[in-house]
Amino acid sequence: MLAAPIGVWLLFFFVAPFLLIVWYSFGEKPSLYETHGNDVFTLQRYADAVTPAFLSTFGRTLQISLLGTVLCLLIAFPMAYWMAVKLPSRYQGIALGLVLVPYWTNFLVRTLGWQITLSPSSFVADISRSLGWGTPDLLYTAGAVQLGVVYNYLPLMILPLYVALERMDPRLLEASRDLGGNAFAGFRRITVPLAVPGIGAGLLLVFVPLMGDYVTPAVLGGAAGSMIGQQVAQQFTIAQNWALGSAMAIILMLAILAVVVLFGVLFKIVGLIVSRFEHVAVIEDAPGVSA
C-alpha cells in the first residue's frame, strides 16, 4: 500500500510517456509544420532511422561505451581496493567524500574543465609549444570524448566496487595466506568473487548512461566524436521529426536492454563456470597444502 504512490507516479510519468513515443514511432511526419501524425500505421520510421550514417554513429557509440566501461573498471578497481582494504577505516569516509566532491560539481562544468585543458589556447598547448612540439590536436576528437566519458562516469564505478570490497572480511585473506596461498591466489579466489556484485552494478551504472550521453560528445567531440544521443536529440529539437526521433530512441533503448541482458547472461555463465572450476580446485589443492 505504501508503494502505491511511487507506482502511480512512475506509471504516469515514466511508462505512459514511453508508450506515447512507441505510438509516435509507428506514425509519420505528415507535413513540414507538424512534428508527428498517426493517420498511418507503419514500420517505415524504423527503416528510415537505420541509415548508414546512423549505423556508423551507433557503432562508434557502442565502441566508446564498451571501451569506456572497461577503462572505468580497470582504473576504479585498484582505487576502490586501496580505499576499502588498505586505507585505515577512519580515513575511508574522507576518501569516499573526495570521490563524491568532484561528482557533485556539475557534470557539464567538469566537462568544460576538460574542454579548456584540451583546447589549443590552454596551458597544456602552451607547454607543448614551448617544448617545440607544436600545438597538439586534442579537442574535437574521438579520443577527447573517450577521455571525457571515462572521467565523467568513473565515480559511478568506484562507489559500488568500494561498497562490495568494504564488506570483505580481511581475515579471509589472512586465512588464505595461512593456508599457503600467495597474494594472487587470495586475490583471485577471495577478492574477485566477493567483488562480483559490485563489478556487475558498476558496469551497469557506467554503461547505460554512457550509451545515451550527448553532453560529453557535444562539448568535446565535435563532428569526429558525435554519439547516437545527439542524433536522437536533433530529431526532436532541430529537425522537428518526432516520429523518426521516437523510432531512434526506441532502437537505442532496445540496444541498451539487449546489451544489458546479454551481459547479465554472460556474467551468470562465467560465474557458474568459475565457481565449478574453483570448487574442484579447492578439493584438489587441499592435500597439497597439508603435505
Binding site: L20, D213, G229, V232, G245, I256
Partner: peptide, 12 residues
C-alpha cells in the same frame, strides 16, 4: 533507461 529516452518521451 538513458536520460535522453526519458527526455524525448517526457517532452511530447
Amino acid at each position: 533507461t538513458p536520460e535522453i529516452v526519458n527526455g524525448v518521451s517526457l517532452l511530447p
